[in-house]
Nucleic acid binder design. Structure first.
Lengths: 149, 149
DNA sequence: TTTGAAATTGAAATCCAATTTCATTTTAAG
DNA sequence: CTTAAAATGAAATTGGATTTCAATTTCAAA
């Protein structure tokens, strides 16, 4: 699995290697991201029902502190986590119909943001951007039900 | 004060006109926005210490539902409210040093967002964008203390 | 005006995710 | 091995958001 990642994380953080941490890391890095703690915990439970919720919580927090996980809070208020990878620098399109989350990246957007910041004499360290709306699927569904109803 | 606004809100919402609602609305629309419930409540208290926290909470919620207030959640997780006005369509620059919040609007940005959405066959209903960083003041302060230290 | 149903208020209770506590267990350095 | 420090996990706590409910107030109709 993610053995090397696990080892380097433990080493770099001067942490102790535990079965729990390794299992949680494996589950997390093989998940599709944008999951909340309850969802991650549920997946961990399937692998090892002995692992406590608190441990999952603390492990995700550790991973976040060490840059291996990213915490996201969209408008619904839920705290979600995503595994950090090379392509972690992205924003989100979120469907209000089905909850689908699509990631995107746009260089022009970043350039514009820099320009805005400069105009206000700000130095940006990071940003958050989400576009909320309806995906193609949900829009066509809506049309159909409108036709029927 | 905001007597007309109050009356039209009550009328349009088929609500009852109460002293509490009028006072809360006045305080809220004369505040500078981006305040959390505790802050708004504190201000209301100064005008009328008899008004309960729950009533402030419910009134802000009502105002939000009726489009007179906007709820915002930035990365710090706090729920803030701002009075809705003609220029309510804006995004935010947020200083991580002093907490200063600057509003801005950018048409080019919106156009880009539309383009991105179209590419993913999304229909945007609204968005959220915040740029986090250091304002000019905080950056110059940092430089000075670095010089000293 | 008076009346009374419905709406509103506010203190207290509840909810619920996030976080902490603490007794026990595990890790790993010596 | 031994042992101090770290980690675990169940339970308790926290804190903001929300609901409950008895008492009060509003306002339309009599």
């Amino acid at each position: 699995m993610e053995t090397d990642l696990f080892k380097s994380w433990i080493a770099r953080g001067r942490l102790k290697a535990t079965r729990q941490r390794e299992e949680i890391l494996n589950v997390f890095f093989n998940s599709h991201g944008h999951q909340n703690l309850a969802q991650i915990y549920a997946q961990v439970m399937k692998v090892d029902p002995k692992i406590g919720y608190t441990t999952v919580y603390r492990t995700l927090k550790l991973l976040t502190r060490h840059g291996l996980a990213l915490q996201r809070k969209f408008a619904d208020g839920e705290t979600r986590y995503e595994p950090v990878s090379d392509k972690s620098h992205h924003d989100h399109l979120i469907c209000l119909g089905c909850g689908k989350i699509i990631e995107f990246e746009d260089k022009d957007m970043e350039a514009l943001q820099e320009g805005i910041a400069e105009r206000h004499r700000f130095k940006i360290s990071h940003h958050r951007m989400e576009l909320y709306g309806q995906c193609a699927d949900c829009r066509s569904k809506k049309k159909n039900s409108a036709r029927k109803g």
